[in-house]
């Protein structure tokens, strides 16, 4: 356990250091969610949107944007592992006695920390538009996002390991995973307004449960019925992602 924790910290430090040296990279990576927030959010809060007041709409929309960020960033982070694999750096690391699970956990933790920083910025940007953040609710949502980020980036690492050595299939598989998960989760529009078949597909999408839970938590409704299924979905995705990615790394090495 000590070796696992020590190697997780080492892996996290190794990955976060270059990001801290170039913090603008974190901000630039937010371009897409910020555009969605400003352009899409303005439409939803407009007088003809049918969503109700601006505050209610932002309260509904911002958690969706945060989950969208959580999908886009961590789900594509495996490309770094792929690049290290084809470059020979991963091989060098795998010859050391590094704890394989720690190697994955440290890398995914870095994605989650980056995600948290981005979430704070998104909330800060949305506040002048009419969002009144519920601080404990926002913190609980970020905690949920952090754990989901670990799980999703673990899946991205799994895809990267499976796509070795050429890596050609990595981006194809990522897109195939990303868009259904995002569009069937109700991050931008409520799924409840869709047809029955769409709602049926959303019912098997774990991210849809996380979105509902995040919206409840973000509004400070900690005991809302949507919270527990969302927490369970995050726990399952994360446990499965870390387990499978670690196993793949052990086998691949």
């Amino acid at each position: 356990m000590r070796k696992f924790l020590q190697d997780t910290v080492t892996s996290f430090h190794r990955e976060i250091r270059p990001e801290l040296r170039q913090p603008w990279g974190i901000v630039l990576a937010m371009a897409q969610p910020v555009l969605f927030l400003v352009l899409f959010g303005s439409v939803l809060t407009g007088p003809h949107s049918g969503f109700g007041g601006a505050e209610t709409t932002w309260q509904w929309f911002v958690p969706g944007i945060l989950i969208m960020m959580c999908l886009v960033g961590p789900l594509s982070c495996g490309h770094q592992l792929l690049s290290e694999s084809s470059g020979g750096q991963l091989e060098r690391i795998l010859v050391t006695p590094v704890h394989r699970a720690a190697l994955i956990t440290g890398r995914t933790l870095k994605e989650s920390v980056t995600l948290c920083a981005q979430a704070v910025l998104i909330i800060a940007i949305a506040t002048p538009f009419g969002l009144t953040p519920h601080i404990p609710g926002a913190l609980a949502t970020m905690l949920l996002l952090t754990v989901l980020g670990i799980g999703l980036s673990a899946f991205s690492h799994l895809l990267a390991i499976a796509a070795r050595p050429s890596g050609n299939l990595f981006w194809v598989a990522t897109q195939l995973l990303l868009f259904p998960l995002m569009l069937l989760s109700g991050v931008l529009l409520p799924i409840s307004a869709g047809p029955a078949w769409l709602r049926g597909l959303a019912a098997v999408n774990p991210v849809a449960y996380v979105v509902d839970a995040a919206r409840a938590l973000f509004a400070g409704q900690f005991l809302a019925p949507a919270v527990l299924p969302g927490v369970v979905a995050v726990a399952v995705v994360t446990a499965l992602g870390l387990g499978l990615a670690t196993r793949a790394l052990r086998r691949g090495s």
């Binding site: 270059p18 020979g88 750096q89």
Partner: peptide, 22 residues
């Protein structure tokens, strides 16, 4: 190995220290 082993985005000394930690 056959390929260059230090990460492209990392500084040389940082990679050595990290290697020691592994």
């Amino acid at each position: 190995g056959q390929h260059h082993a230090a990460g492209e985005n990392h500084r040389v000394r940082d990679e050595l220290v990290t290697q020691g930690r592994w």
